[in-house]
């Protein structure tokens, strides 16, 4: 099982890692049995032209290299996107942006898009 260079880059130096203290939405997915838990925090700003835009996003993850790399990647992909655009980011988009994941990881450690959707749902509920 080999990871792409992009996965290793995001894993060893994750982007947007940490906590947002007053988030507008939070999503947590995964479970300790599989070994991966992910939490995404978002801040949403209203933009006159574009509508609701994710202005800040951070993550916390307990998991393997691929779990950390996909978390990091989704924060890059979702930042400055509208919530409609962000909801459309799929597992495949994340895997593709990382130049692929080992087949076994596609399912077990690629939960980041679900964590993001959960955070957006949470934001909508709180609205």
């Amino acid at each position: 099982m080999q990871y792409s260079k992009e996965v290793i880059n995001h894993f060893t130096a994750p982007h947007n890692q940490g906590v947002i203290s007053n988030p507008d939405g939070v999503g947590m997915v995964g479970n300790p049995t599989c070994g991966d838990l992910m939490k995404i925090y978002i801040k949403v700003k209203k933009d006159a032209k574009r509508g609701e835009v994710i202005s800040a996003i951070k993550f916390e993850t307990l998991g393997c290299a691929s779990a950390i790399a996909t978390s990091s990647m989704i924060t890059d992909l979702a930042k400055n996107k509208t919530i409609q655009e962000a909801t459309k980011i799929t597992r495949d988009d994340v895997a593709e942006a990382l130049n692929g994941l080992p087949p076994i990881k596609i399912h077990c450690s690629n939960l980041a898009s679900e964590a993001l959707v959960a955070a957006i749902e949470d934001y909508k509920k709180k609205k």
Partner: peptide, 14 residues
């Protein structure tokens, strides 16, 4: 541990 924060504790408390 910085990357995972308190996520496991939170999972169990929830």
């Amino acid at each position: 541990r910085k990357v995972s924060g308190e996520i496991l504790k939170e999972y169990y408390s929830k």
